[in-house]
Amino acid sequence: MRPTKKLGQNFVHDTNTVRRIVAAAELRPDDVALEVGPGLGSLTLALLPACRAVVAVEIDPVLAERLPRTARERAPELADRLRVVPADAMRVSAERIGAPEPTSLVANLPYNVAVPVVLHLLAELPTLRHGLVMVQAEVADRLAAPPGSRTYGVPSAKAAWYADVRRAGPVPRSVFWPVPNVDSGLVALTRREPPSSVNRDAVFAVVDAAFAQRRKTLRAALAGWAGSAVRAEAVLRAAGVDPSTRGEQLGIGDFARIAEVAATL
């Protein structure tokens, strides 16, 4: 087989790196690890002895078919802990993943779909309590960025709805095959309760509108979402947010409060 750019295939081949990832993931013996894009199985083999089971979601049919055989050849005493789900991680359902339900997301995510995969899985699988993912360094910065920082944006705010997110270290290019043209980084996730009981989609609509024109004040940026700039200002003031503020200054709790007020005005 040959790695394809279309599927974002850059396989980790360094033993020390996969051991480092598994150690940083802090898996417990009763955890069920969800791995997305297992590729040739390097990380899979390191995960098998660290937890109760590994569920690997692989979109490439050739790799999905080969992975169980790799486990039987390389770790025969642990191969029965592995279950492969041939599916697209951006669309896979909890029902398709089945039992045992994953409790931890540990994966080397394809660069081109890392953010939507993380957000989809956190939404679809409430049993995911923690995780450690390897992504492009720039994506890692965006996911873990706090309000007010230069890289804070839609991925940061939406990820914060589900979890506390932090950078967990860099990863050199040399551990991949083929060697990518970008640096990578580890991101740690710890699930927490949403900051509000308001409908998540309503909150995310506010986030999307606020960052669609991030140079504009919220009064202007939310005008289309609210129906007019006048109503946007009224909603913002009722939510305790200065209308002249920009979206990058707000945390996910602020966006939730705006959505909640908008539903009542």
Rank of each mutant, 00 (worst) to 15 (best):
M1P: 14
R2G: 06
T4N: 11
K5V: 11
K6Y: 13
L7C: 08
Q9A: 10
Q9D: 10
Q9M: 11
H13W: 13
D14M: 08
T15G: 13
N16E: 15
T17F: 15
T17S: 03
I21P: 00
E26A: 15
R28S: 14
R28C: 10
P29N: 10
D30W: 13
D30P: 06
D30E: 14
D31H: 06
E35N: 09
V36M: 04
G37Y: 09
P38Y: 10
L40A: 13
G41T: 08
T44H: 03
T44N: 04
T44C: 01
A46S: 12
L48C: 02
P49M: 10
R52Y: 02
A53G: 13
V54T: 11
A56H: 11
V57P: 00
V57Y: 04
E58F: 07
V62Y: 10
V62N: 08
V62R: 14
L63E: 08
A64L: 12
A64G: 13
E65C: 03
P68N: 12
E73V: 11
R74C: 14
L78H: 11
D80I: 00
R81V: 04
V84H: 01
V84N: 00
P86A: 12
P86M: 05
V92T: 06
V92H: 01
S93C: 04
E95G: 09
E95Y: 01
I97H: 07
G98N: 05
G98P: 04
P100C: 02
E101H: 14
E101D: 11
P102F: 06
P102R: 06
V106I: 12
V106A: 01
P110S: 03
P110C: 02
N112F: 09
A114K: 07
V118H: 03
V118P: 04
H120N: 11
L121F: 10
L122W: 15
L122F: 15
E124K: 11
P126C: 09
L128M: 08
R129Y: 01
G131N: 07
V133F: 03
M134K: 00
Q136K: 01
A137M: 04
V139R: 01
V139I: 11
V139D: 02
D141V: 00
L143N: 02
P146S: 14
P146L: 09
G148H: 12
Y152T: 06
Y152L: 04
P155Q: 09
P155Y: 07
K158L: 11
A159P: 04
R167N: 01
R167E: 07
R167F: 00
G169K: 03
P170D: 10
V175T: 05
F176W: 02
F176P: 00
F176G: 00
P178D: 10
S184C: 05
G185S: 15
V187W: 01
T190K: 15
R192G: 11
R192M: 04
R192N: 10
E193W: 10
P195A: 05
N199P: 00
D201M: 02
D201I: 00
A210W: 01
A210E: 07
F211R: 11
R214I: 12
T217N: 06
L218T: 11
L218I: 11
R219I: 02
A221S: 13
A223I: 07
V230H: 07
V230G: 07
V230S: 09
A234V: 08
V235N: 02
V235E: 01
R237V: 14
G240M: 12
T245H: 15
T245D: 15
E248Y: 14
D254G: 08
F255Q: 00
F255D: 00
R257F: 05
V261R: 05
V261A: 04
A262S: 14
T264L: 07
